[in-house]
C-alpha cells in the first residue's frame, strides 16, 4: 500500500516537531503546593480558570507520573532537601515553574528560614512573578513554558542547555554527578 491511497486524515511532519507538539499539549504537573501560591494554583485548576483547556488539569500526586513541577510558595531550609528529592524522582524530560516571588527569589522573606530562590536547588525554566501570582499570571507562565517546549531541544538534557539560573545549575549538576 502506498501513500497514494491515503488522501485524507493525513499529516506529515518531522518526528521532532510531532514529539514536541505532543509533549507541549499534555504537560502533567506534580502537586507541589507549599504556601499561598498553592491556593492560587488550585484555583487555576478549578472551574473558573480551567487549566484543562491546556491539557493540564491532571495534577499527579506521584512525581514519577509528572513532568512539570510548579514550585508554588516559599521553600524553607527544612523543605529544600524534600523538594530536591521530589525533583530527582521525576522522569526526564521535566520542567520547573517557580511560582511567586518567594520561590523565585525569597521575596519579602529574606531571612534565616527561607531559601533565597528555588533555583539554588533545582533548575528553573519559567519564573512567575507576583505575591501570589494570579491564576492569569500562572497561565501565562504555563503558556510561556509551552512555547519553550515547542521550540526547545528534545533530546539534550537541560543542564547542558543552561536552563534556569546558570550559576546554580552548574554547581548543582557537578554535585549530582559525584558518586555517593
Amino acid at each position: 500500500m502506498g501513500l497514494e491511497d491515503l488522501n485524507h486524515n493525513f499529516l506529515t511532519g518531522r518526528i521532532e516537531d510531532l514529539v514536541k507538539w505532543a509533549r507541549r499539549n499534555s504537560v502533567w504537573p506534580a502537586t507541589f503546593g507549599l504556601a499561598c501560591c498553592a491556593i492560587e494554583m488550585m484555583s487555576t485548576g478549578a472551574a473558573h480558570f480551567d487549566l484543562a483547556r491546556f491539557g493540564m488539569e491532571v495534577f499527579r500526586a506521584s512525581p514519577r507520573q509528572a513532568d512539570l513541577m510548579i514550585v508554588a510558595g516559599r521553600v524553607s531550609q527544612k523543605m529544600a532537601p524534600v523538594l530536591r528529592q521530589v525533583y530527582d524522582q521525576m522522569m526526564e524530560p521535566k520542567w520547573v515553574i517557580s511560582m511567586g516571588v518567594c520561590a523565585s527569589s525569597g521575596g519579602m522573606f529574606n531571612n534565616y528560614a527561607i531559601v533565597q530562590g528555588v533555583d539554588q536547588i533545582v533548575p528553573v525554566d519559567v519564573y512567575s512573578p507576583g505575591c501570589p501570582p494570579g491564576p492569569e499570571t500562572l497561565m501565562h507562565s504555563i503558556l510561556t513554558l509551552h512555547e519553550l517546549i515547542r521550540t526547545g531541544e528534545i533530546t539534550k538534557r537541560r543542564g547542558a542547555a543552561g536552563a534556569g539560573a546558570g550559576v546554580h545549575v552548574t554547581e548543582r549538576r557537578v554535585a549530582v554527578a559525584t558518586p555517593h
Binding site: 529574606n110 531571612n111 534565616y112 533565597q116 533555583d119 539560573a165 546558570g166 550559576v167
Partner: peptide, 17 residues
C-alpha cells in the same frame, strides 16, 4: 532563631545570570 543575638539571616540580593 528568635534570640536577639541570632542574626536575621538576610543575604544581599544577587542577580545571577
Amino acid at each position: 532563631p528568635l534570640r536577639k543575638d541570632f542574626g536575621f539571616g538576610r543575604i544581599p540580593v544577587q542577580f545571577k545570570g
